[in-house]
Computed example of a mutant assay.
Amino acid sequence: MITTVYGTWNRIESLSLSVEQSVADYLGDFVDDYDFAAVVGDYRAAINGALPDSVVLSGDEFIGPYDAADRDFDGWPVDEDGRLDLKAIVDGVDLDEIANRHDKTI
């Protein structure tokens, strides 16, 4: 299967260039209260789990099948252009719940 880039992380959060930056911004002044690497790792895993099987978040890029015949996105949210709505999928992942699992102050 030939793959292509569907978009980079800044399609999800326009002011952030990476998942790590988004997590750091989310935790803000309390970043040291969390196991940062664990939060980032679990967030990435949750995002990948929420994506269709043929699409992955690799680094800061979403990669999926190039050929339309290899895309089975029925039932997945799409944007106004009919493309997979990556933002809607990522927005469905609960970063707060993930961060709370790795709160070192509890």
Rank of each mutant, 00 (worst) to 15 (best):
A88I: 04
M1D: 06
V90P: 14
F36N: 01
I47S: 00
G7V: 12
D33Y: 11
V5E: 13
I47M: 01
I106S: 00
I98N: 00
V5K: 09
D35I: 03
M1E: 10
F73G: 01
R71P: 06
G28M: 10
D103Q: 01
D67N: 12
S18Y: 06
D29A: 11
G28F: 08
R83W: 11
S54N: 05
G92P: 09
G64L: 14
A68I: 12
A38D: 01
D25E: 14
I106C: 00
E61C: 15
D96M: 04
N10I: 02
T8V: 07
E13M: 09
D67K: 11
L95P: 01
T8D: 14
E80N: 05
D103P: 12
A69D: 11
E20A: 12
L27E: 11
V93R: 04
I63D: 07
V55H: 02
S58P: 00
D85L: 09
F30D: 09
Y34T: 05
K87R: 10
Q21L: 12
A88F: 01
I89V: 04
L15T: 14
A50I: 06
D67G: 06
D74Q: 10
P77N: 15
I12C: 12
P52T: 07
K87E: 02
E61F: 13
I106L: 01
V40Q: 02
G41P: 01
G64R: 06
E20I: 03
L51C: 03
I63C: 10
K104W: 01
L57N: 03
V5G: 08
D74G: 08
G75V: 09
P52E: 04
S22G: 09
L27T: 04
I106Q: 00
I63W: 07
N48A: 06
I47T: 02
I47W: 01
Y66F: 15
D25S: 15
Q21K: 15
I98P: 01
R71E: 13
A50M: 07
I63Q: 07
T105A: 03
F36Q: 01
F36S: 01
W9G: 04
I98G: 00
V23L: 11
D67F: 13
D79H: 14
D42E: 15
D79L: 09
D33A: 03
G41C: 02
S58W: 12
F30T: 06
D53A: 15
H102I: 08
F73M: 05
Y66W: 15
D35M: 08
G41V: 04
Y6T: 04
I89M: 06
P52L: 14
D103I: 02
S54M: 12
V39G: 04
Y34V: 05
